[in-house]
Nucleic acid binder design. Structure first.
Lengths: 209, 209
DNA sequence: TAGATTGTTAATCGATTAACAATC
DNA sequence: TAGATTGTTAATCGATTAACAATC
């Protein structure tokens, strides 16, 4: 295994490769060349070959890439066969929708608990996952050792909660709060999702030109 | 007005600048230097000055940038004072959450209608917006001329619907369906959001090192 | 074998960073 | 005026593209 550091642009393209290869497999396509895949994905063939070769030579000269095999390899790289424990904090509109809509399984994750400070929600469940009161977070984490927390809480509540969650052993945050979470600890990974930024970008591009 | 083309990385940073400047204004900070802003945002001062100078010189030598003024300028560039008409298709879990959770107003948009093919949903409403049957989409678009459609529908339904929506005058798609929407028409802008990709990226980064 | 397509190196392009003169 | 910080040009860095030898 090469210990080479993978650049961010490459990392961000991996899930997309994985998705497109899934579609191809679904369409019963057995082999594909970098040229064809590039055409489909709106990339260049060179780039695709460069990307794959960050991890090793998965193709065969004169043939291309075996779709099923390549998909499995990239799946392995992305760790989709793992069962990373995930908890979700904040069972409001967005929290519930994410719990129900995102296929955690497919992403190598397993949503094992939802927490909310509203006592009225405790005892109910969403997407088959029980909603628990915040008081039980500590003991739950000690018992089940989730490594990722999805944050669907208001901005104000987030920063302090994050420190606590890190002390509970959380090593990754998928942050939907309306602020940019920044953590000093280099072992903690943060993925900020700003839907508003995405919509603004769309609006800007429409008014350009 | 410079007709210079703005690069994608710069465009993607604009909403973030806008957000951070909003926070600063909230904290009653009147002026800020590129150096201080860089520190807060995890960028370099050079980059910030380069970015702003794509649009014009908004700062003042020896002083820095006036927070409120700069925020308004960037807001103007992003078009947050516009009222771009938006419709949302698919009032499932995710559709409802987006309708309720995303602040369209703040993004220069106005969510004016939700459509769903399920006749049971017709007549109900989410986030104060009425849910209407797909049959009324045509006449609604002719009357209200929305320019953006949010797609919260299954992959299978999406591609054909998109063609129809374009014929109804939709020029921008905010696509949450599980597929990459690609449109040939250069006047149509697409912003694909893949929450699964984002989660996979987080998981990958956690297992790296 | 001939044709196709990879893996990989070299060339190009674009974005970020550094430097500094202009100026408030 | 002196100090600070911008706007802007030049240097660097990294990512993408092009080219081609290796090889299935």
């Amino acid at each position: 295994m090469s210990k080479q550091v993978i650049s961010t642009p490459v990392i961000r393209r991996l899930p997309r490769y994985y998705r497109f290869l899934g579609d191809l497999e679904h369409e019963k396509v057995e082999r594909i060349s970098s040229r064809e895949l590039a055409l489909r994905m709106g990339l260049s063939a060179s780039q695709i070959r460069q990307d794959f070769n960050c991890f090793g030579g998965f193709g065969q000269q004169g043939y291309g890439y075996h779709v099923k095999e390549l998909r499995e390899i990239i799946g392995g790289i992305l760790g989709v066969r793992e069962k990373t424990g995930v908890i979700l904090i904040g069972a409001g509109n967005l929290g519930k929708a994410i719990a129900a809509h995102v296929d955690f399984q497919k992403c190598g994750c397993s949503l094992i608990g939802i927490f909310d400070s509203d006592p009225l929600l405790a005892g109910t469940s969403t997407a088959g996952i029980p909603i628990m009161p915040m008081e039980t977070l500590d003991s739950f984490c000690r018992q089940h050792k989730p490594s990722v927390a999805v944050l669907c809480i208001p901005k104000e509540a987030a920063q302090t909660l994050v420190e606590i969650l890190i002390s509970y052993g959380i090593g990754g945050f998928w942050n939907f709060s309306h602020f940019d979470l920044r953590v000093n600890n280099p072992d903690v990974i943060v993925e900020n999702v700003h839907l508003g930024d995405s919509l603004m970008t769309l609006a800007f591009c429409m008014h350009q030109e």
